[in-house]
Design a protein around this nucleic acid. Structure first.
Lengths: 239, 239
DNA sequence: CGTAGTTTTGAGAGGCGTCAAGGAGCGTGG
DNA sequence: CCACGCTCCTTGACGCCTCTCAAAACTACG
């Protein structure tokens, strides 16, 4: 394997065990490389796509951090997810050939563009890829259901604890510390995702700090007591 | 077309424009008939599957009404959806080959069993079916996002109004009245879905009745003023 | 006709939203 | 290097919406 070759392809991407190519054979990877022909760089604040735009591609986050959000006619909006490296954005667009949410880069980022018709074409050829696409969509559905659980039945401190644990776990899976993290989103965006106001997010952070569970300096968070957070999530205050 | 033949197949099913076979050619329909070989009848309260069971098939609701719900270790639970005729249940199981929720029949029901490996096999053959499977999964994702919006940013009356409108619209698409409906679920199940307690559901119903927007007799609901419900959903009390 | 499950309604409490003010960090420009 | 303005964050006080607890009415079913 020639390391000096910086050709940016799935076959040489260090995310391939996290991303779409997961589990593909070398031969299949080669074919996938042809699908993932283009890249796109975004600066912080840029939209990868906006609601209403025609859907044509899925995007794999190569670097950076994204949020997806839906906005109603009357100005209400809801962050539906935060995406980090290796995660797939754009699945919402398939059903109506139109994106139903905005995808915004929360820091400078790069994505791999995967034209969906080509993904479908290749899925017909490779069982592995086909099944993996299905798994990715199913994972998103399961994830959404757990967010519904969070929004539907947890109190503010439980929500924030679950959020921090989830973030730390995903970062850990990417080789980062499981106890130290830098939030890429504002308190308001966290609140929108968790169904609470930014003031409540801030107050809950402060309470966790008072209780010695975490340390916070701006966007930097140090989880001092993971078990305490887990305990909060499973507190079953209700019935 | 021989009407007297009651062979129960997609090709002769009156739901085919609503269900998985949507848009398939007669030839493709024939092949799909071989996939959808078995049916399953359930009585009210029966589980189509439970969380933890091995995933093998998707299910299309042929008659009856279902709920899906997830339960946490500490007893919290969340209804993640209500499914009626033509809708697909079981997508949650694909990612880990294990179902992550329970699917319960809320009235006597019948489902078409579609072994997923066969669905995948046929999708590799027919672009139409492949794309339709993707659309069904994408639709579920988009639906979940709108529930997240509801749970994250609406008040009790807005949630219930949105719920009633959604139910009426889906029933209307199936040939039922757009203003009269019979709820198949309890107040508690509605509450679990909408992230509120059953008492709040009941109280909100009562308020709508007082305001002349709906009539309620037990599970029977008559929507007298659809526009009023729409107005409530878009009230933008916040911000 | 009694029992269990469901629904309604009331009273009280508390968590979170709302409104408001102040503080901290950061980029820009003098 | 410091001043300035902007955005983001924190904290407080107050009020309301929803939860909690409780009791009673209603329906369904055996």
């Amino acid at each position: 394997m020639d390391i000096s070759t910086v050709k940016v392809a799935c076959s040489s991407c260090n995310l391939r065990e996290l991303c779409l190519p997961m589990g593909l054979s070398p031969n299949e990877l080669d074919k996938l490389d042809r699908v993932v022909a283009t890249r796109r760089r975004l600066k912080r604040g840029d939209a990868l796509f906006n609601a209403g735009e025609k859907f044509s591609s899925l995007y794999a986050v190569r670097s950076g951090f994204f949020k997806t959000a839906i906005t109603t006619a009357d100005g209400r909006d809801q962050v539906t997810g935060f995406q980090m490296t290796g995660e797939i954005i754009g699945l919402d667009g398939i059903v109506n050939d139109v994106h139903s949410c905005d995808a915004i880069a929360l820091e400078d980022a790069e994505v791999c563009v995967m034209p969906f018709d080509q993904v479908e074409e290749l899925s017909r050829e490779f069982t592995t890829l086909q099944h993996h696409v299905h798994k990715i969509m199913s994972r998103e559905i399961v994830r959404d259901h757990s967010v519904m659980l969070l929004l539907g039945s947890m109190r503010a401190d439980e929500r924030l604890a679950a959020f921090l644990l989830n973030l730390a776990q995903r970062l850990h899976a990417r080789g980062f510390s499981h106890s130290e993290l830098v939030l890429r989103m504002t308190r308001e965006e966290i609140g929108s995702y968790l169904g609470m106001k930014l003031e409540t997010v801030s107050r809950t952070f402060s309470r966790f700090v008072d209780e010695g569970i975490i340390e916070v300096r701006q966007r930097y968070v140090h989880i001092k007591d993971t078990d305490a957070l887990k305990l909060i999530v499973n507190s079953t205050s209700c019935g």
